[in-house]
Design a protein around this nucleic acid. Structure first.
Lengths: 218, 218
DNA sequence: CCTTGTGAAGTAATTCACAGCC
DNA sequence: GGCTGTGAATTACTTCACAAGG
């Protein structure tokens, strides 16, 4: 279902844009000025025709015989991804995972700033994590309002996840990244992406032919 | 590309099996004995026809007019996913993320045990993480051999990821879960799954219509 | 030349809709 | 009556292959 006002870009393409963005950032850092669809495809680990079709969806013009201008393409993709400004995020749950995410370099670099981390456990509240201090869950709305937060990250145990989602929605959050292994129920207009780390391992396990016992070791 | 010896199951189905597995585990814990495709679909947040088609791929028999036997279906799916035994895993990188993963309850519960965590930084080596002690990267092969590890988890900075992958492959690992934002080059027969947390946020950002500034706050 | 952009072909995944069985 | 299992229809995605432009 296309978002009104913007020509619809296939979901599969959207999922690859961040990948191209990453590769282009690397190329730019190396001082490269142009890149062909084939080179970009190699870097991104995909097929060259796919790169061209993906980029064609938002009318980004390469130059035939030459390729794409790295700087220009990067700006285009960043603009498509709404990365021309930084996104403040708030994390609910200051356990192992939440705490790690709060100081995770991989976010800060790529357009996202964690502006708050919350918990309900008094033992965790007040703890310092880099420049952040763990605050009480009830401060959620204040933080969201003060920092104009649109993205919430759920890093609580599964039993608490639905409650956390409700509070985030209540506070005005419209996008949720959910690390809890639970299907969240949220109102229309709020988008959820689930990251279940065990699922990823289970998919790997599926494709492992040999059972672990039979490895050519002992 | 189907794995020899097993009837090919579509990748999209494989990716959902862990989700069904999770929901069925919950149902079982609640004491439910049967479930219809529609109920399971609701829990998993997908369409009922999809559930039926997915399950039909490995010939799991439900009962018409009744539904599926929870226990039986759970065993079937676990068996498809090779979850009838536990999978030992090793983590490379004992920074924030690696350390969090090492003590992450979400793995242990679901068929995966972290049996080792490694780093190169002397400041981290020897550190205690729950029942584990951070060891030197050079101990990788010993751990893999001793514990019959087939799955490696990369949680190092991007610049070190390819090297880590090479060492894992060298040590005999055939499946890699990669948290570093880099496309890894590995030999045929080694499978990689990438989890780039910033990518997930970027996809959310894409779908956010309003720029963060324009929220109805101040 | 080389490389893009894109119709057309091919493949995969989803959903429909209903026959068949409990 | 209710629910599964599945062919058929639909939709989405990928890949090919080539015309057109630098």
């Amino acid at each position: 279902m296309p978002v009104s006002g913007r020509a619809s870009i296939p979901e599969a393409t959207v999922a690859r844009l961040p990948l191209y963005h990453r590769c282009l950032t690397d190329l730019q850092a190396e001082g490269r000025t142009t890149v062909s669809s084939e080179q970009l495809a190699d870097l991104a680990g995909v097929n060259a025709a796919k790169v061209r079709k993906d980029l064609s969806h938002f009318g980004s013009y390469g130059t035939r015989g030459v390729g794409y201008d790295v700087d220009h393409l990067l700006v285009e993709i960043a603009s498509e991804l709404n990365l021309d400004h930084d996104w403040p995020c708030v994390i609910v749950g200051a356990g192992n995972l939440g705490s790690a995410l709060a100081s995770f370099a991989g976010f800060t670099n790529r357009g996202f700033t964690v502006v708050g981390i919350l918990d309900v456990d008094p033992a965790r509240i007040g703890r310092e994590l880099g420049t952040l201090t763990v605050r009480h869950q009830d401060d959620l709305r204040d933080i969201v309002d003060a920092e104009h937060v649109a993205i919430g990250i759920i890093a609580v145990p599964p039993a608490a996840a639905q409650d956390a989602a409700g509070r985030l929605v209540e506070a005005g959050i419209t996008s949720i990244l959910n690390f809890a292994p639970t299907v969240l129920d949220v109102p229309d207009g709020v988008q959820v992406r689930d990251v279940d780390l065990a699922v990823e391992l289970q998919i790997l396990a599926f494709h492992e032919q040999r059972p672990a016992r039979e490895r050519p070791a002992g």
